[in-house]
Design a protein around this nucleic acid. Structure first.
Lengths: 235, 235
DNA sequence: TTTTCTCTGTGCGTTAACACACATACGGTG
DNA sequence: CACCGTATGTGTGTTAACGCACAGAGAAAA
C-alpha cells in the first residue's frame, strides 16, 4: 500500500526546493528501501550518501563503550540524514539506524556537495534543517535530564507517529528502551500505565495510539518546543 | 593579568582563518567585556551579533516552563556563540549566559553573513565548528541520561577548565547545579567526595582543581569523545 | 500439536537522586 | 567587632529507576 501512494509521499525538504534545483538533483536521486533495524551509518564510519526519508524514518543513536544506547534525534520525511557531509565532518561519532522500515531518496556525497556549494536554496534549506535538528538534540539533552520515563515515552510515541503518519507502530518495549536509554521493564511499566489510561494499546511489538489528544496532554513541553521550532524554520 | 596576555589570547576559530579573511573581518570586530551571569541571548530573542570568546566562556542553557534549567553546551575561545545567525534561524529557543567573565570579539550579523555567503574558509570553519557543537550537545543528551552526578560534575569541571585555562574556577554549587540540572545538595555531595579524594578543593564559590589526572580517570567517556571530535574537525 | 523463541508482566531488593528542613560557616559591610 | 546575607553541610524520608530473576503468553517453527 505504501507503493500506491509513492507519488504523493515526498521528502518535505526536497519539496521545499525551487523547481530549478529539483531538476538538477532529480537525475542524481536514487530510491532505496530500508528495513527495520538496518544501520545506515556506523559511528565514525565513512558516509557516502545523504538520505532523504520519505516513508522510512531513522534514529540517531549513540552507543556507549559498555553497550548502552540512547537516541539523540529522530529523522523522518521532514529531514535528512547525513548532515555531517555538508557540515564538513564526513563522519559523526554516532550511528544512524532505521526505526521505521520504508523508502528514502539518496544522493551521492559529491553531487550533494556540488549543489550545497552553489550557496543557493539547497544550502539554505539544509542549514535551516540542521538548526532544527540542533533544537531537537538540545531538547533531548534537557528532557533526558528533567523528565520521567513516562513523559519521555509519550514524547517518543508522538514523535514517531508524526514521522510514520500512522497510529500503528511496530516496535517492542526492548527496542524503545534502547531509544530512551532506560531498562526494558521501565518501558513496560510506563506503557502499561498509558494503556490503562486508554491512550495506547499494545501486544508483542505492535503499538496502537488510541488517543493522541490525551498523549499531548501528558507529554512534557519538549515535544511542542521541537515541533514549533521546526515549523518556524521550515514552515 | 588577563590584559597583559591579551595579545596572545585569541579566539581559535578566528585564528584558523586565512590572512585575507581576517583582514576583511578585522575592522568589523569589536571587543566586548562580559561579566559573570550576563545573558547574551535570551530564548527566542533577536540576535544581532555573533560572539567569538577569547578569555570569556559562555553556557548554552535551556530553561523549562517551571524554571528548572540545564546546560546543553559550553563555548569558550574554541568556538563561537550565535550559530543560529548563519544557520538561518535568527533566534534559538535557548539562552546564552556568561559562565566565565572575560572578553569576546563580536561581529554584526550582517557583516558575518556577508562573509559567510562568500562560501570560503569562513563558512567552512563555522560549519565545522557547528558540527563539533552538535557532537557536544548530543553527548550531553546521552551523558545526562546514562551517567551519575559525580561523573557529570567531573566532566563539567574539566570542560570549564579547558575553557578558562586555569585551575581556579569561580562558581558556587548552586550555579553548577543549574548547569547540570540537578539539586544544589547533589552538587555539594559530589563535590565533597571529589575533595575527599584530593581532586579538588573549594570554599564559598571558589573551586581549585588539584589533580586533573585523577579527574580524567574518573570522568565518563563523554568528555574525551567531545574533545576528540572537536580536534578532528578543527585540528 | 508440540516445541521453541521472543515479548511482556511482575516481584524484590538496591541505589541515586529528590524535596524539604535546618544547622553551620564564611566573608563582606556597617 | 558584630551582623547579616550567602554558601555549604547534613539529616530524614520519599520516589524513580535500576538490576536481576523468573513466570506467563503469543507467535512461529517443527
Amino acid at each position: 500500500m505504501v507503493a500506491s501512494h509513492e507519488h504523493v509521499i515526498e521528502n518535505r525538504l526536497l519539496s521545499k526546493l525551487p523547481p530549478e534545483v529539483r531538476e538538477r538533483l532529480r537525475p542524481q536521486l536514487e530510491t532505496v528501501k530500508f528495513s527495520l533495524g538496518q544501520v545506515i551509518y556506523e559511528s565514525g564510519g565513512r558516509m557516502k550518501h545523504v538520505y532523504f526519508p520519505t516513508t522510512s524514518h531513522i534514529s540517531l543513536l549513540y552507543t556507549m563503550i559498555d553497550g548502552s544506547t540512547a537516541e539523540m534525534g529522530l529523522v523522518g520525511n521532514e529531514g535528512v540524514v547525513g548532515i555531517a557531509l555538508f557540515m564538513g565532518g564526513e563522519t559523526t561519532p554516532n550511528r544512524a539506524m532505521v526505526q521505521g522500515a520504508g523508502v528514502a531518496f539518496r544522493l551521492k556525497a559529491k553531487g550533494m556537495l556540488d549543489e550545497f556549494k552553489r550557496g543557493g536554496e539547497f544550502q539554505h534549506v539544509m542549514l535551516r534543517y540542521t538548526q532544527a535538528l540542533i533544537t531537537q538534540i538540545s531538547q533531548t539533552a534537557v528532557c533526558n535530564r528533567l523528565h520521567s520515563v513516562e513523559q519521555r515515552l509519550c514524547r517518543w510515541l508522538l514523535m514517531t507517529r508524526d514521522r510514520t503518519g500512522s497510529d500503528e507502530l511496530q516496535m517492542t518495549h526492548e527496542f524503545i528502551s534502547n531509544m530512551l536509554g532506560v531498562r526494558r521493564e521501565g518501558v513496560t511499566l510506563a506503557a502499561k500505565r498509558l494503556q490503562e489510561l486508554g491512550m495506547i494499546s499494545y501486544v508483542r511489538g505492535h503499538i496502537i495510539i488510541l488517543d493522541r489528544q490525551q498523549l499531548l496532554e501528558r507529554v512534557c513541553e519538549c515535544y511542542q518546543v521541537v515541533k514549533d521550532e521546526h515549523k518556524r524554520l521550515l514552515g
